[in-house]
Simulated scan of single mutants.
Amino acid sequence: MHVVRYAEAPAYDAPGHHDMHLVRLQGREAGPADTVWIGVSTLEPGGGTTLDASNVEKMYVVLDGEVTISNGREEERLQQWDSCRISPNEARQLRNHTLGLAKILLVMPLQTTGPPR
């Protein structure tokens, strides 16, 4: 068993992210994992990501607040416990259009050909 306390989860940076605080809960520098890593992103009001694609599947679950997610063609506002899958090579952009903080859980495979996003 490997436990990571949220208060001790290692922070990380990712390209194209602004006004966000990113931590890993499991995998990579947060500890051992065989197939996926899990992180939590806190989006400040106005915070988010650029519209970008990667070669891996991404799963998002809104933990708190509201997050707008777009693939460049469609846009959806997700609220607490709503989830979204982004397929490999599909663009995605996250935005917090509210005045409060938003938190989103991210699950991604460990195998990537570029830097983690």
Rank of each mutant, 00 (worst) to 15 (best):
L105S: 02
W81K: 11
T42H: 11
V67S: 00
L22D: 10
S70H: 04
N55P: 04
D52Q: 11
W37K: 09
R5A: 00
H17A: 02
W81L: 13
V61E: 10
K58M: 04
N71V: 00
M108H: 08
Q93L: 12
P15I: 05
L63R: 04
A30Y: 05
V107D: 06
E8L: 02
G100M: 03
L110G: 07
D19W: 12
A7S: 14
P109C: 01
S83L: 10
T42I: 01
G39P: 02
G72L: 01
G27W: 11
A91S: 08
Y60D: 06
E29A: 08
A33R: 00
G31W: 11
D52L: 09
V56G: 10
I69H: 00
S70V: 06
N89R: 04
A14K: 01
V40I: 11
V40Y: 05
L110K: 00
G48R: 00
G46Y: 13
S70E: 07
H97F: 13
G39A: 01
A53I: 05
T50D: 13
R77I: 12
A11R: 05
S41E: 10
G100S: 13
W81M: 15
D52V: 15
Y6Q: 11
R92T: 08
R73W: 13
S41D: 15
I38H: 01
T49A: 05
R24N: 07
A33D: 14
D82A: 12
S54P: 11
A11T: 08
D19T: 11
M20G: 06
N71K: 00
I104Q: 00
N96A: 02
V61R: 02
P15M: 02
R77S: 14
T68F: 13
S41Q: 06
R77F: 12
P10H: 02
C84V: 15
G100Q: 15
L51E: 03
V3W: 00
W37R: 12
M20I: 09
S54R: 04
P15S: 11
L63Y: 10
L101I: 03
A11N: 12
H17R: 08
A11D: 15
E76D: 13
V61P: 01
S70C: 02
L22K: 00
D34K: 07
P32E: 13
G31K: 01
L22Y: 11
P32Y: 15
L43W: 15
G72F: 07
V107C: 05
N55D: 14
R28T: 07
R92E: 10
D52F: 10
Y6I: 11
H17E: 12
M59G: 09
A14H: 04
E57D: 02
D82E: 06
H17V: 05
A53N: 05
P88D: 07
G48F: 07
A91M: 13
T49I: 09
N89E: 08
G72Y: 07
N55R: 05
L106W: 09
Y12H: 09
L110W: 07
